[in-house]
Amino acid sequence: MSDYKVPVMAELAAEGKAPEVLFWVGCAGSFDQRAQSVTMAFVKILNNLNIDFAVLGPEEACSGDPARRAGNEFVFQMLAQQNIATLNMYNVKKIVTACPHCFNTLKNEYPELGGNYEVVHHSTFLQQLINDGKLKVEGGEFKGKKITFHDSCYLGRANDIYEAPRAILEKLDAELVEMKKCKTKGLCCGAGGAQMFKEDEPGNLRINEERTNQALEVQPDFIAVACPFCNTMMTDGVKGKDKQDSIKVFDLAEFVAKANKY
């Protein structure tokens, strides 16, 4: 039995405390079963490093990303303004999140609505911890294995973050192989722009199938992702190819937590 601490903002505030960093869990990280294990992996890392953090819990609302991108600005504004009111009430300064969509919206779209915070994606956050010598990552079960990283659009093209996820994976003593289409040319997993929440338009192939084909070309043992929606899409894609036993899809936080046997 382990006893990981997950402080909730409202409770800390009642005690007159404020954490250094708010962990923005996101809807996927809260409710989606696959993404929940990423959330747990990340919380284990935070606990192990004694990082002073908290979550909003029931006070967290969707960042508004899928509403705005589907075209529903009203719903976006309601969610965004509600979140900003909450974050400002707690005087939040720094936010870390494992979801590139939340990251992008909070970082780039909240400031003009009155929400100004230092927002970092967990890839950059973990890289920083490694650089500062606070987080040590050993290869563990990933030593010598072949890993390919799938760039998330909202991390890469949207925010120019390409190196941080790779820097973390390099610490695993694994063989990092790039897909033909990577970094700025990375192919979307198919979930962005609220596609996650509706059926595909008619076509020859689903986008995640195409991306999975590209990943399989490099014959990896693991596909690394940095986004809960990419995670779902790639996991489904691998299952569609009946490769789920030989190829695992993991988030960066899971790689770190598993390698360090947290």
């Binding site: 869990v25 809260s30 029931p58 969707c62 589907a70 719903v75 309601m78 969610l79 996650m196 059926e199």
Partner: peptide
Amino acid sequence: EWNNMFSNLENNQAPWQFSPQDRL
């Protein structure tokens, strides 16, 4: 599906039909 998502977002602050109380 998007209409469902919008109403979930309005009512539960999440794109799926989960209660905010279950976030943790």
